[in-house]
Design a protein around this nucleic acid. Structure first.
Lengths: 234, 234
DNA sequence: CAGTGCTTGTGAACTTGTGCACTCACCCGT
DNA sequence: ACGGGTGAGTGCACAAGTTCACAAGCACTG
């Protein structure tokens, strides 16, 4: 109640906040203030949506003027939890794990890859992106020692559920899964999935339809996830 | 009318079809028939959703029995356009592009990486995953020569829009974008986005909330995209 | 060949998300 | 000091997606 029972932020909005954040960072040096219209343009959505989304964070804009970029950045970062340090473990150092370990985009937002783990004994001990690959058996210890809350799964599909179970057992409560498998996790653990094959197949679906029917098919320009944008086919 | 004006398949359903497809492939060798309940369990959704989704494809089930796995697989593959050959070009052969080029999951579904392109002259000519990296300037020629319809962007954010424009100019109508940037494409081009940082930030949001409020926050167990599943926090 | 049990297919209620349009607060210029 | 213009905040109607509940249909048994 002291916290003013902050309005629950809809999932669709949460998914767009990072995009707004990035857009704000891009113009941070140019302008001190930004309108919903301009921000909408940068983020690829419409202005009404921007205003509604930002209103869930609170009334941080000034009517007739716009939003203060600095302040909005701060509030948004805080809301997204980016003001804190998030140690991350990557499990499965194949091609993708390798790429993720070397991905620079992490650090900027408070995410830091602090451990790499793989079940393959021939990989254990090797250095990747400045870290040494540790055996899967040490996962629990590693997670606890570093107080890791976020785990990334980049293993083959077959191993993914086992890894997820181990991560959960070790106390991890957020999982990002790149393995093409449906994982089940207990309540209290959030998990998101990134699936390359699924994305391609969705594209294929639309591509195929396009070829088949000369008939126009209207597609919406975004999903609840904000990860998609379609243009209209005609 | 002959084509029975096929019901438009909702986006949310399209996004789940690949998941069903994968689930079916897993049980293909075990059972000839599958119930909506079983399929729901494998795909991590609920049974009613499975039935509704499948109903958009047509009435392929048998009441009291279930769905014929083989037949469903065939229909679904056809619907998703996986019965055809899809040549794919990857632009940007950094860590991620490298990983994507080596990713095996493509071939199984009709996707084939037929060309790798990078703007960096020091990378051009090198062999990656059996293909030679070609210069960005040859993109147009490559796309036309191989009749490529799908392009994957794995460049830094700054280059992404330019690459997208080139892809579109070359005649590509489906783009999968891994660069952390909002791209605009003309009507008639579909584009999907996979953004690592966004995913992490969404996880961070929930993780952060969890820590802040001892108050329970209920999260839905899936989005329109089917790429997410959350458990409830308490 | 009728009865029983199982599972699909789907209308309808409900929830969530989107987009419009309008109000009202605030800044700035005079 | 005050009025005009601009752009935030929001109520509302609509669209999309989800879930429920149940009738309809098929296989199998006696």
């Amino acid at each position: 109640m002291t916290e003013r029972a902050r309005r629950r932020i809809p999932d669709a909005t949460v998914a767009r906040l990072p995009v707004y954040l990035r857009s704000l960072l891009e113009i941070e040096s140019d302008s001190t203030t930004v309108s919903s219209e301009r921000l909408a343009e940068l983020a690829g959505v419409n202005a009404a949506k921007v205003r509604k989304d930002l209103s869930y964070l609170g009334s941080y804009g000034t009517r007739g003027v716009g939003y203060d970029v600095e302040y909005l950045l701060f509030q948004m970062s805080r809301e997204l939890g980016l003001t804190q340090h998030w140690p991350v473990v990557i499990v499965g150092i194949g091609n993708l794990g390798h790429a993720l370990a070397n991905y620079g985009g992490f650090g900027a937002s408070g995410f830091h890859v602090v451990a790499l783990v793989d079940a393959d004994p021939t990989k254990v001990g090797k250095q990747v992106a400045g870290s040494e690959i540790r055996p899967l058996t040490e996962l629990d210890e590693i997670v606890r020692a570093n107080e890791i809350a976020i785990g990334i799964i980049a293993t083959p599909a077959i191993a993914a559920q086992d890894v997820a179970d181990r991560l959960v057992a070790a106390g991890i409560t957020s999982i990002l899964n790149f393995a093409p498998a449906v994982l089940t996790v207990p309540k209290g653990v959030s998990m998101r999935k990134v699936d390359l094959a699924v994305e391609l197949q969705i594209l294929s679906f639309h591509q195929q339809r396009r070829g088949a029917a000369s008939q126009g098919v209207a597609l919406p320009d975004g999903t609840a996830d904000g990860t998609t944008s379609f243009a209209t086919v005609d």
